[in-house]
Amino acid sequence: MLISEIEMISPSTLEECLLILSTEGTELRLIAGGTDAVVRMKEGKWLPEAWININRIKELRHITEKDGAIHIGPLTTHSDICRSTLLQKKADVLVEAAREVGAVQMQNMGTIGGNIGTASPAGDTIPALYVLNAAVELQSVNGTRIIPINQFFTGPGRTILKQNEMITNIIIQPQADNEIGIFQKLGPRKAQSISIVNVAISLKMGKDRQCLEGKIAFGSVAPTIIRAKKCEALLTIQPLTDDIIENIAKVAWKEVMPITDVRATARYRRDMSSALLERGLYRLMRRWESK
């Protein structure tokens, strides 16, 4: 099947889109920015009978704070995230991750819903969503369900999303005044390529360098994003001096589970996971001390 032979359907409302998705016996795929879809089509993958272009559904593009949580529509672009004063103040780690998603043109077109739906272990915004305790809202004509982000992915390119469902909202927990976050990425070319390793860190700080609670999520080192639980447990034992940070980073080397592929060896990914975590924690401490 040629790309030009695939039908394109463009609903203008969420209700209309959900009705189309409920059609049985037809292979359908959603498309928004198309930054991943176009590449997959050129590779001979992702060739459904019809594409559903959801760009006209305005209600799916928003960043709002409601009932103590921040709601982000799936059509919100990475540039929208970077420009949001709300997210800059209450979800800095997500803003930093969005800034690393490809070149500016890709940030303008690519959407957070697409980044999640593609389910790549190297997706840059996904580790940030993990440390923000995100949940994904899924809708179909049959109803709505809300799934914690760590339960949404089942493997590379695979999710629990049903054929008749779509992502309609991403819900994150805002950072408190004493919380700081950072996103670190290693790629062959800065901001232009798939991550070899990435890491998101969020820390809730007390006096001096005492961490009260910490969350660390690595990407591109396992079939799905992983939380570094052993490293997290060490964050709160004693103040985060430079020596303690170095020791925590060494634990990350054993905690990640990377593979060797055309972009990097497993050992290199382990080394870089440790290095990125160490650098990220150093930078967070400098940032905290300058507040």
Rank of each mutant, 00 (worst) to 15 (best):
Q88P: 01
Q88N: 08
K90W: 02
A91Q: 03
A91H: 06
D92S: 15
D92R: 13
D92C: 08
V93P: 03
L94Q: 04
E96A: 08
A97M: 05
A98G: 02
A98M: 02
R99E: 08
E100V: 00
E100A: 06
E100P: 00
E100W: 01
E100F: 03
V101K: 02
G102I: 03
V104G: 00
Q105E: 07
M106P: 02
M106W: 06
Q107K: 13
N108Q: 05
M109A: 13
G113W: 05
G114C: 05
N115R: 00
G117M: 07
A122D: 10
A122R: 09
G123A: 15
G123F: 08
D124A: 05
T125G: 08
I126S: 08
A128M: 07
Y130H: 14
V131G: 07
L132Y: 02
L132W: 12
N133M: 13
N133E: 15
A135L: 11
V136P: 14
V136S: 13
E137G: 15
E137Q: 15
E137L: 12
E137W: 08
L138N: 11
S140K: 15
S140A: 14
T144G: 05
T144H: 10
R145V: 14
I147P: 13
I147T: 15
P148F: 13
P148N: 12
I149K: 11
F152E: 00
F152W: 06
F153M: 12
P156M: 00
P156V: 01
T159R: 13
I160D: 06
I160Y: 03
L161F: 07
K162C: 01
K162H: 07
